[in-house]
């Protein structure tokens, strides 16, 4: 229980959980675990089971894709105060890209099965999560579309 309280404090300091009802956050903390990754480690890989989702406290993460015969391509970086690994909330809960640490990262991971179970039982908890997840997903989709425009590319090239 002491650990859960410590995790609850860590969560409360993260922007993703800002203004979340303390009771609700307490339930979430029950599924949480503190993790540290060294620089250059994969947090998860494309195709893997999305059994966790991640609250990035310190550090930065590259979301990347491996391209055969080429260097892997970084599609996006995630920094302090952001979350990553949102496949946990979308069936069939499969990772779409690789996530690799660019430096030492301090992360709180949340057990997806645990959380999905609690959300199924308590829909208001589910609603709290969707309210926070959908803006993040929309922002990433918007950013991806802008990147697709290749705004800075040479129009004559």
């Amino acid at each position: 229980m002491a650990q859960a309280e410590g995790l609850d404090k860590l969560l409360s300091e993260h922007p993703f959980f800002r203004d979340m009802d303390t009771k609700v956050r307490g339930i979430v903390a029950g599924c949480a675990k503190n993790e540290v990754f060294e620089a250059g480690q994969y947090v998860f890989n494309e195709g893997g089971q999305a059994d966790k989702f991640y609250i990035l406290r310190h550090g930065s993460i590259a979301i990347e894709v491996d391209v055969p015969s080429r260097e892997p391509l970084i599609l996006e970086t995630v920094n302090d105060g952001e979350i990553f690994g949102w496949s946990w909330i979308v069936p069939p809960y499969r990772r779409t890209f690789d996530a690799r640490t660019l430096e030492l990262c301090r992360i709180v991971s949340l057990d997806a099965k645990c959380l999905r179970g609690k959300m199924e039982k308590d829909h208001s908890l589910g609603y709290e999560f969707y309210k926070r997840f959908i803006p993040v997903m929309a922002e990433r989709l918007g950013a991806a579309r802008l990147q697709l425009l290749d705004l800075y590319g040479n129009p004559r090239a």
């Binding site: 260097e71 599609l75 970086t77």
Partner: peptide
């Protein structure tokens, strides 16, 4: 600084410039 795409030798930001604003 941020870039639209990068190879793994890049340790900086990847993403749109607007994302840098909150930080």
């Amino acid at each position: 600084a941020t870039v639209d795409t990068a190879g793994t030798d890049w340790t900086g930001n990847v993403g749109v410039v607007t994302k840098l604003l909150p930080r």
